[in-house]
């Protein structure tokens, strides 16, 4: 009785454990938004695809390991019951097996480790925000975090910070769609700063997250994959996406939100004009 029940419970964990990853709509217990693929929000950044495929790569290996180990547990719990066996096998282990299950996972884990490196370097290394000669790429805007809101400081029409046409956009980060000569999306570089405590700049749809640390200025970058974005936008009415604070910053942490919106170059310029007019009057 207990043997059957225990085996079923372990087996159920194995089956539901796998199934819940596959059958998205069923397990969510409610309708899922159209701009979701699988369990996560559809990404549209130039690096997002890489991140997602690294996730899936690990997922495959993890699933195999999960099936082997949980499967073994289920099988042994069922099979090696005291009621059915007279005497246990008297064994203290096996050198060969130890070697096998050390070497094989070690190899797999090393593969996982090394396959992460180039993507991580592309995201976080200093070279990611520099051009080929090692010069810093120009900064698109400054991201300022403070309890409990996001503010985005733009250099204004002259493209230079610290001049008197700088303007500030509260709440909404607006990005232009820019392409380089090869027609690829251009990197947009930002300075991330905090005025008070720790915060974290998180955009789920762009698979991006970085803490804003007071006293530290961090150069970060985002790249928009425009085709991918068109597809996502086609699924929804909202034209902007959530920015979420991902590091506890006080009682208002839960409502420290912002939005990010991407505009074609001409609309973006119109927006800059509008913001300038709003903040400095028409001059």
């Amino acid at each position: 009785m207990m043997r059957l029940l225990t085996t079923i419970m372990l087996l159920a964990l194995l089956v539901f454990g796998l199934w819940s990853w596959v059958d998205y709509d069923y397990w969510l217990l409610g309708p899922s938004p159209a701009h979701y693929t699988w369990w996560w929000p559809e990404e549209f950044s130039t690096i997002g695809q890489d991140i997602d495929s690294l996730f899936y790569l690990i997922a495959v290996m993890v699933a195999v390991m999960f099936v082997i180990t949980m499967g073994g547990l289920v099988l042994f719990t069922w099979k090696y019951s005291a009621k059915r066996q007279d005497k246990a096998v008297f064994s203290h282990g096996s050198h060969k097996l130890e070697l096998l299950w050390t070497a094989v996972p070690a190899g797999l884990l090393l593969i996982i480790a090394f396959s992460q490196m180039s993507t991580f370097a592309e995201i976080q290394f200093a070279s990611a925000t520099q051009d080929e000669e090692g010069n810093d790429l120009p900064v698109h805007c400054e991201i300022w975090a403070s309890q409990f809101d996001w503010r985005f400081r733009y250099p204004g029409k002259d493209g230079r910070f610290g001049t008197n046409d700088d303007f500030e956009s509260p709440y909404e980060l607006v990005l232009p769609l820019q392409e380089n000569e090869e027609g690829d999306a251009k990197k947009l570089v930002f300075l991330l700063r905090s005025r008070d405590v720790l915060h974290s700049f998180f955009v789920p749809h762009l698979r991006f997250k970085r803490d804003a640390v007071p006293g530290m200025t961090q150069r970060i970058w985002l790249g928009i994959d425009d085709k991918q974005m068109e597809e996502v936008l086609a699924t929804r009415e909202e034209k902007s996406f959530d920015i979420i604070c991902a590091e506890l910053c006080g009682w208002g942490h839960y409502k420290m939100s912002g939005r990010v919106r991407v505009l074609p170059q001409d609309q973006y310029e119109a927006w800059v004009d509008e913001m300038t007019a709003q903040q400095f009057g028409n001059s």
Binding site: M2, R3, T6, M65, T69, G72, L73, F76, T77, Y80, S81, A82, Q85, D86, K87, A88, V89, S91, G93, S94, L97, E98, W101, T102, P105, A106, L109, L110, I112, A113
Partner: peptide, 26 residues
């Protein structure tokens, strides 16, 4: 960190090895 999963995996395999051919009292 990824390599620390290795000793964890070894332990899981050895627990399974312990159960293999055993006489389980639930």
């Amino acid at each position: 960190t990824i390599m620390i999963a290795l000793p964890s995996a070894i332990k899981v395999f050895n627990w399974l090895g312990t159960l293999w051919g055993s006489r389980i009292h639930l």
